[in-house]
Design a binder for these strands. Structure first.
Length: 276
DNA sequence: CAGTACGCCTGGTAGC
DNA sequence: TGCTACCAGGCGTACT
């Protein structure tokens, strides 16, 4: 499931492969992917526009088009972009085709059809649902300890669903939440407002470092995620808890356990991550 | 307002 | 083998 490192990897791939290209036309084979817009309007809006950049905010991709339009694209669970030679027949799960100049087609594939793309004016992009209330990027400059103390202090939510909520911190998903909670020795059911300053400081630095490291490795390959280059990320080899239920904790050797927290599978060490 | 349950989807797999 | 049941889960929406 693409989280921040995977989305950033896709952004870099797209920047290399399609920035500078002009859209000749589009085809949409699953209407829900483009929200309220009809395939006809989608095609009329985008045809003739040049792709002038691809930005990212949290897990959202922001395609910048000539003429002041932005396409906000969220990959959700399995969305993926890749380029093929013009004329390539789309497969069953290729939901959208962007026919580009220079005989390139950009395909959007999404097996489970959860991903969405919304075309809006540039100035409306940050009003798109999900972006309107998005929290700070998990970087040294944007995610300050002072912010975390204030934000976590306001909520009694369990820390796991708290971290998955993009309005608190942008970019974390199930994998990196499990990883960073384990690294920080914090139990997933700990109430957000009971974390001490030193625990928050540790968590903050683990989040920032982990996402940066995963990005360097081109993200984690689970299920169907591949980069826009068609290559697999390598960070799955670095994961310390996700997908390792029953295997020994890398710190204390206790078999890792799995439980449901807010309907999500959660792997943790029952000894290292002590419940308060 | 804060927090929670559900629906959206399909491929893979466990169990019979 | 072929069938059913269930699981994976990010996020928007509806609800408490």
């Amino acid at each position: 499931m693409p989280e921040l490192p995977e989305v950033e990897t896709v952004r870099r791939g797209l920047t290399r492969l399609v920035v500078g290209r002009t859209i000749k036309s589009t085809e949409v084979r699953w209407d829900k992917t483009i929200g309220d817009m009809t395939p006809t309007v989608f095609n009329e809006e985008l045809s003739g526009r040049q792709i002038i950049g691809v930005d990212r905010r949290g897990k959202y991709l922001l395609f910048r088009f000539s003429g002041g339009l932005t396409m906000v694209s969220h990959l959700r669970m399995e969305g993926a972009y890749y380029t093929v030679p013009a004329g390539t027949e789309p497969g069953k799960h290729d939901l959208v085709t962007f026919h580009l100049d220079q005989d390139i087609d950009l395909f959007y594939r999404d097996t489970r059809k959860f991903g969405r793309m919304n075309v809006v004016l540039n100035e409306q992009a940050m009003q798109v649902a999900g972006l309107a209330k998005i929290g700070p990027e998990p970087t040294e400059d944007d995610l300050t300890l002072a912010y975390m103390e204030t934000e976590f202090g306001k909520s009694r939510m369990h820390v796991k669903p708290f971290l998955l909520d993009q309005s608190h911190i942008a970019g974390l998903g199930n994998i990196y939440v499990d990883e960073t909670l384990w690294q920080s020795k914090i139990h997933p059911l700990t109430a957000a407002n009971t974390l001490t300053t030193s625990e928050l400081s540790e968590l903050r630095s683990n989040i920032i470092t982990e996402l940066a490291r995963a990005t360097e490795h081109h993200g984690t390959t689970v299920h169907s995620f591949t980069t826009a280059f068609g290559e697999a990320g390598q960070f799955q080899n670095e994961l310390q808890v996700y997908g390792r239920v029953g295997e020994p904790c890398l710190r204390c050797g206790t078999p890792l356990e799995k439980m449901k927290v807010a309907q999500r599978g959660t792997t943790y060490c029952p000894v290292c991550q002590i419940e308060k």
